[in-house]
């Protein structure tokens, strides 16, 4: 079977801070990592390949430096990695990004038919969770988002336990399909030394806008309907009111709860029929 994994190199957002004086992102020295959800997507693809036989192809869009992330991804045991890199791709929003990845996946599909495309459930730098479904729609594959376990797989279908509103569901999709992956799906492996060495000298294939039949109006800034109009720091804490509950705990708690409801911090929803119960 042929598994394709979409992978993104992202800044480690746990180390991104906003400079309160200049109101800007402090990105200097923030390390780049493989988007954590994508790493789990890759892990799952490799496990399924090891079980079912076949091949894992990684595809990523990013600047040339993203080669590092692809090399690292190869050390988990993937078979092939492709980096889509072109100045014309820069500034793409999720709609354009999905387009760019889809065209590449179509080419991969033409070479070797794909059974499953895996993506992380979202990228930690954008948190949009749009690229995976976007690719599925463009490819015409059914999508199973927020996957937490692949229960069954055969040559024609895959059954996935996935997170949804109000619980979990078990859903079955015909192949080829696209699955987006939660961290809970698996434990990442610790690559073996031979795999590390293979990856250290691996040169990812580089595809640019000219190597594929791209419509330039659909990609980059031109192909992106959304754009950022301004950024600003998140609203600060409202001053941190201290409530002393050492002498009169009862009064203090009543006072707090009153405020919490008054300020709509917690809201009451009527438990109507058909509503949330």
């Amino acid at each position: 079977m042929h598994f394709v994994v979409c992978l993104k190199q992202v800044p480690d957002t746990s180390e991104v801070r906003i400079d309160p004086n200049t109101n800007t992102l402090m990105r200097e020295g923030v390390p780049s990592i493989i988007n954590p959800y994508d790493a789990h997507a890759l892990e799952e693809a490799i496990r399924l390949r090891d079980k079912m036989g076949g091949k894992v192809t990684i595809v990523s869009m990013g600047p040339p430096q993203a080669k590092e992330a692809l090399r690292k991804a190869m050390s988990f045991g993937a078979d092939r990695a492709i980096l889509l890199t072109d100045r014309g791709f820069a500034g793409s929003d999720s709609l354009a990004t999905a387009y760019i990845l889809t065209v590449a996946i179509q080419k991969i599909h033409a070479e070797e038919p794909i059974d499953i495309v895996f993506t992380g459930k979202e990228a930690i730098d954008g948190d949009t969770a749009q690229t995976g479904p976007g690719i599925a729609q463009r490819l015409g594959f059914p999508q199973l988002t927020y996957g937490i376990r692949v229960r069954e797989i055969d040559n024609t279908s895959v059954t996935v336990e996935r997170k949804t509103e109000g619980g979990r569901e078990v859903a079955k999709a015909l192949l080829p399909a696209l699955i987006t992956v939660e961290k809970e799906m698996n434990e990442l492996r610790y690559a073996t030394l031979p795999d590390m060495m293979k990856a250290a000298v691996y040169e990812p294939e580089m595809w640019d806008a000219k190597s594929l039949p791209y419509d330039t109006a659909e990609m980059g800034l031109k192909g992106s309907p959304t754009s950022v109009s301004r950024i600003f720091p998140p609203p600060g804490r409202s001053g941190g009111e201290r409530i002393d509950a050492t002498t009169d705990p009862k009064g203090a708690v009543a006072n707090l709860v009153e405020k919490v409801f008054q300020e709509n911090i917690i809201m009451v929803h009527p438990a109507v029929k058909g509503g949330r119960a």
Partner: peptide
């Protein structure tokens, strides 16, 4: 929600329009 974040990207892609999440 898990459902909104699943179906809206699909709708936006079909309509080729922009979508802002969350």
């Amino acid at each position: 929600t898990a459902i909104g974040r699943d179906v809206f990207p699909a709708v936006a892609t079909r309509l080729r329009t922009g979508l802002t999440a969350d």
